[in-house]
Design a protein around this nucleic acid. Structure first.
Length: 141
DNA sequence: GCCAACGTTGGC
DNA sequence: GCCAACGTTGGC
């Protein structure tokens, strides 16, 4: 079964990776952008997620996984938005900053850089692997 | 705090 | 259907 990879953004003062670790699981709601929503809908249980802190930190801090595929976002009654279930896998041994991503040849084409305002974006297997490698994070794949 | 990028809205 | 105005995101 092919597994896909994604990057999800959150401002750490709103919902941080450590909060997700505490919660054990959460619903990824509040997405109000069509393209981001379509990416949520393309997620399958078991897909892996890079958890990025925007504004504060500007770095990828952890790995999470999809525990539940897309369902209607109850926080948007009458509108057609989606949520997925997300659970933490592991924090990165070393966080990967935006600066590092920009400097790293293998990561220069990341959608994160090309589409800076998109809050849910696809990540290639090669990019995902590179992030794990650079962050010295083991036991995920 | 500023501003570039860019998605959305609304007038025509 | 075009496009100006406006609002939001997110880097700096």
């Amino acid at each position: 079964m092919p597994q896909n990879y994604w990057l999800i953004k959150s401002e750490p003062n709103k919902y941080s990776f450590s909060q997700l670790v505490k919660d054990k699981q959460t619903q990824w709601d509040g997405v109000r952008n069509f393209e981001a929503r379509n990416n949520l809908r393309a997620m399958k249980v078991g897909d892996l997620l890079l958890f990025y802190h925007s504004n504060i930190g500007k770095e990828i801090v952890g790995i999470a996984r999809v525990t539940k595929s897309a369902s209607p976002d109850q926080t948007a009654k009458g509108e057609d938005w989606s949520v997925v279930g997300v659970a933490p896998v592991t924090p990165l041994t070393r966080a990967i900053t935006l600066e590092t991503i920009k400097k790293t040849q293998a990561l220069k084409e990341m959608v994160l850089l090309r589409r800076s305002r998109l809050s849910v974006s696809p990540v290639t297997a090669a990019e995902f692997k590179k992030i794990l490698e650079l962050s010295e994070t083991k036991g995920v794949l």
